[in-house]
């Protein structure tokens, strides 16, 4: 593999996201400009200019026309993907962290961190057909137990919302009433990332407790545990194989105290069923913060603390090799 190195960000990456067809790649970092790339050759298409703080997450609509970003400048912005124009700004009282479109993009969920006396909240906003008459006020806001909400996702035909949080819990909320329906303590540390499988039946979480876990989306039961021995910052599921891509590594503040080999900054591939690591791919100089699989499973992307995004297209032997 000869990966493309995308040098668009000056700060650590936070999330990488492909659109539905997989030709567009969105990257968010701790700098204020989310960036759009072509996934086939890594060309930069544009940057979304308007935020004033780090952008912890983004989501793209199914038809790739709208992008929603959450920023630590206490706002969430809705963008026109093609032109980079900001269509609407949702203003909040606290830094925003997670965003997700509902299926069909009628609604969106935005989480805000605990700030001053305010607890962490999840806001459900209704999205207007025409961005000109978009309302800023959320339809419903509900409070969550302490801890930042790092990722959210709509499930069950938009009736419930899954949220993973800093305290190691995954919680299910009723979208209409904001009532918490279920909570499970699945990790001992901060859950950094959650990515749904293509069919939405299960999801993978990555946590600072040095494990990634495969969780049933219906029962919130932990199905598989992948032990990484280093912080797991992000995990992605291959859409075509039983492979899990886990990015992480030694904490950035500890990097200079040990040899680079000990940091384990490789993108690591685990078998989804056997829970065993079978391959790794080096490249980053610091921990990997974000990972994503292309929807066709033929390429993957990693974003590091070093500010680089590495876009890998698998060689043919990945598809023919028998790893087990």
């Amino acid at each position: 593999m000869r990966p493309y190195l995308l040098k668009g960000h000056e700060r650590p990456l936070t999330q990488l996201k492909f659109n539905r067809e997989g030709d567009l790649l969105f990257s968010c970092a701790k700098d204020p400009h989310p960036t759009l790339w072509y996934s086939s050759d890594g060309q930069r298409v544009g940057t979304y200019i308007g935020h004033n703080g780090a952008v912890p997450s983004c989501d793209v609509s199914l038809d790739s026309s709208r992008l929603l970003t959450a920023s630590q400048d206490s706002s969430a912005k809705l963008w026109d993907v093609e032109t980079g124009e900001c269509l609407h700004t949702f203003k909040f009282q606290a830094p925003c962290r997670a965003v997700a479109f509902s299926l069909g993009e009628q609604h969106a969920a935005i989480s805000t961190d605990a700030f001053m006396a305010q607890p962490s909240l999840i806001h459900i906003v209704k999205l207007a057909e025409d961005p000109a008459d978009q309302e800023s006020e959320p339809e419903i806001s509900f409070t969550c137990p302490k801890g930042r909400i790092s990722r959210v996702a709509f499930t069950d035909g938009n009736t419930t919302l899954l949220a993973v949080s800093e305290d190691g819990y995954v919680r299910r909320y009723d979208v209409e009433t904001g009532k918490m329906l279920q909570e499970e303590h699945i990790h001992e540390g901060y859950i950094q990332d959650m990515q749904m499988s293509t069919d939405g039946t299960h999801f993978v979480t990555a946590s600072l407790d040095k494990t990634a876990k495969l969780v049933d989306a219906q029962t919130l039961e932990v199905l598989k545990t992948y032990v990484t021995e280093r912080n797991a910052n992000s995990a992605a599921l291959s859409p075509i194989f039983d492979h899990v891509l886990i990015g992480g590594g030694q904490e950035a503040s500890q990097v200079t105290t040990t040899s680079s080999r000990a940091g384990r900054f490789e993108a690591r591939f685990f078998h989804k069923i056997y829970e065993e690591e079978f391959a790794s791919c080096r490249g980053h100089f610091g921990p990997i913060n974000a990972t994503a699989f292309h929807p066709d499973g033929r390429s993957f992307v990693t974003g590091g603390e070093d500010g680089y995004v590495r876009l890998h297209h698998f060689d043919n032997d990945y598809f023919s090799a028998r790893f087990f």
Binding site: M1, P3, L6, D41, R44, G46, G84
Partner: peptide, 29 residues
């Protein structure tokens, strides 16, 4: 699509995107 934002004035020599010269293998564990 037309380029926008910081990518607008971008020329080929900006090397925002470079392909690694080195072959990075998928190492078997």
């Amino acid at each position: 699509w037309a380029r926008f934002g910081a990518a607008k004035g971008q020329v080929a020599g900006d090397s925002v995107t470079v392909q690694a010269a080195e072959e990075i293998p998928l190492d078997r564990v």
